[in-house]
Design a protein around this nucleic acid. Structure first.
Length: 594
RNA sequence: GGUCUGGUAGCUCAGCUGGAUAGAGCAACAGCCUUCUAAGCUGUGGGUCUCGGGUUCGAAUCCCGACCGGAUCACCA
């Protein structure tokens, strides 16, 4: 039972006893007491003043007196207008600290909630990952961790868009201009190599179009008639027909890309439990559409294309199969969903996909439902905002993308240089440890920078300004952790970490820290309910701030009173543990020293 | 045009299921290391919460309208 629950039920008893009011739990408004007032928690009494027929300040005072007389945990109170500020006894807080320290999984929900599949990343295999994917990957991974902490069994999944005209373009450009270049021969990462040929295709294609237009052709027509695009389309057809040569080339080039992606994922610290490939799922989707057609749920037009009529759902009509019988985006997502639900007993399906695809998922949900999949209606599109640059959206063809590998490398380099500049550089640090610290800190700065923003909102990234390492940042929180660990290493030989004496009187900072620690389980729950790693970020930052303030004002190891010293050590250890856990929920590692 | 979404300090963002004098960080300025890690701590300045109505004891928060921005409405994925 949390302090809020305890107090809430006490207040309900109080208003019944004092004013004969039958209050619902939602009517009891509890909030943290603002720092300018004395107390830990505040009851807002306005909801009761009307029924009590007394002035707000009087209701607050009477309520406070009752609570103090009848609830053992309240040590004192004060009433300011309609706000009743309650001070909770030190003993209560000390018991809370003792209990959480004894709980190995503090913060986690104990209630099992079924199986949740989280799809994220979902790259195309024709170019390397960029900043948009970084936000996607970090959000997806973090959401998976957070939902696990909330009791879900989570399967992390990735759907790789490994077929289609885009990959044919890269293949074609490589055949024409590549001279057999490989990742080994060029020293390039496979995904970057393929991305370069995708860009090369576009360049050559544009030149062809320009030439046709110069020759007098209409631009729209030129785009269709350019020899390169015709060749790419022919190649896609060959691929669909299973042409051995095209398939072999496709497999070779995709394998280069996968090797590159694997490296990026590993570096980023994200992983998947099960990967699906569009080349395996799109046929399944076609079958489902055919079935729906046979069952009269869809209809075929004169040109042979297949459509779903969604007008009764307030939407338009949606294409499901082209007139040439090939599948579209929607088709393969239907197939992928079907395979997934065959493979796992999924209770909740979550798609981590940008908000530009809200319409797509609205339609997908309706279609799956219409096809008789019970999970369709319940699917969650975790729709996150775009990462924008100062001059607008990233455009791969305009060269304004921020590459994921480059960005991570740059962050780690910044971290290296900042460590070097520190006056208090660790004297005995080995080069290997220094490098490990730089990696954790650089990636920590990047991840926190992205995750601290409300996922639903668009966010701005300015490549010209470096990401901070001071203030409300990942490194600030990592630093707080490293600081505590340093103290604890020294304390290890001085004291044992037990709280035997629950009679210690707490100072303001100690009490505030314990109260903050007590919030953690509710924060984890809120982050899960709202699908928001940002909630965890805000909490971790507030906790680190509280600790640094405490650390500045009070000595831990030089405290002469042995009981107080033991308490401070135990409290610090608990703060470190919760920081580490919160950061783990964000996919951020914490260094023992920095 | 329809639908969705956003507008809070110079900049990046919290706060939004209504509660006390709207908060952080960055940037600027002023202090604090012989003492547990100064990636830290303390202080100063900085606001018409886009605008206008409404609801109420109370509105950045809820409702309506206006203005401005973004997304989306493909035989692209």
């Amino acid at each position: 039972m949390t302090i809020e629950q305890t107090l809430s039920s006490l207040v309900i008893k109080a208003v019944k006893a004092l004013y004969d009011i039958d209050a619902a739990p939602q009517q009891v408004q509890l909030q943290k007491t603002r720092p300018e007032f004395e107390g830990n928690l505040t009851v807002v009494v306005f909801p009761f003043v009307k029924a009590a027929r007394k002035a707000p300040a009087q209701v607050a005072a009477e309520l406070g007196q009752w609570l103090q007389d009848n609830g053992q945990i309240i040590s004192k109170f004060n009433a300011v207008q309609g706000f009743l500020n309650l001070s909770i006894s030190d003993r209560f807080w000390l018991e809370q600290l003792r209990d959480m320290a004894a709980n190995e999984h503090y913060g986690d929900s104990t209630e099992p909630r079924g199986l949740m599949m989280v799809e994220y990343s979902s790259p195309n295999t024709n170019k390397p990952l960029h900043l948009g994917h970084v936000r996607n990957n970090l959000l997806g991974y973090s959401i998976a961790q957070i939902q696990e902490a909330n009791g879900w069994q989570v399967v992390k999944t990735n759907i790789v868009n490994d077929r289609g005209i885009h990959i044919c373009k890269s293949m074609l450009a490589w055949l024409k201009f590549g001279n057999g270049e490989t990742p080994e021969s060029s020293g390039k990462k496979g995904d970057h190599l393929i991305g370069d040929y995708y860009v090369r295709f576009d360049k050559e294609y544009k030149a062809q179009v320009a030439e046709l237009v110069a020759g007098g052709m209409d631009e729209e027509q030129a785009k269709k008639e350019a020899p390169l695009i015709k060749e790419a389309q022919a190649m896609l057809l060959q691929w669909e027909q299973g042409d051995a040569e095209v398939r072999a080339l496709w497999e070779k080039m995709n394998s280069w890309v996968y090797a590159g992606f694997d490296e990026t994922y590993r570096h980023m610290g994200v992983a998947f439990d099960k990967i699906y490939y569009e080349s395996n799922t799109y046929l399944e989707g076609k079958k489902e559409v055919e079935r729906g057609l046979a069952e009269g749920k869809f209809y075929r037009r004169a040109d042979n294309s297949v459509w779903a009529d969604l007008t009764e759902n307030g939407l338009d009509e949606k294409l499901l199969l082209r007139s040439d019988g090939t599948s579209v985006y929607m088709t393969q997502d239907i197939g992928t969903a079907k395979l997934r639900f065959q493979d796992y007993p999924i209770d909740k399906m979550v798609y981590v996909v940008g908000n530009e695809q809200e319409y797509h998922f609205k339609v997908l949900s309706i279609l799956l439902d219409r096809l008789g999949f019970p999970f369709g209606k319940e699917l969650v599109h975790f729709s996150y905002g775009m990462v924008e640059l100062p001059n607008g959206k990233m455009k791969s063809r305009e060269g304004t993308v921020v590459d994921a590998d480059d960005l991570m490398a740059a962050m780690i380099q910044d971290a290296r240089e900042i460590s070097k500049d520190k006056v208090n550089t660790l004297p005995d640090v080995t080069p290997a440890e220094a490098e490990e610290i730089a990696r954790k800190v650089g990636l920590g700065a990047l991840k926190y920078f992205i995750l601290k923003v409300d996922p639903r909102k668009n966010m701005l990234f300015n490549p010209a300004e470096s990401i901070d390492f001071n203030g409300n940042t990942g490194p600030f929180i990592q630093y707080t952790y490293a600081r505590i660990r340093s103290v604890l290493r020294k304390a290890g030989t001085l004291d044992n970490l037990t709280i035997d004496h629950l009679t210690i009187s707490l100072n303001e900072k100690e009490l505030g820290l314990i109260q903050r620690l007590c919030d953690f389980p509710a924060v984890v729950k809120q982050a899960g309910d709202e699908f928001s790693p940002a909630v965890i970020c805000n909490y971790a930052y507030a906790l680190a701030c509280d600790f640094n303030s405490f650390y500045h004002d009070y000595s831990i190891l030089n405290e002469p009173d042995a009981d107080k010293r033991a308490l401070r050590i135990a409290l610090s250890a608990e703060v470190a543990r919760v920081i580490a856990r919160a950061m783990a929920l964000l996919g951020i590692e914490v260094p023992e020293r920095m």
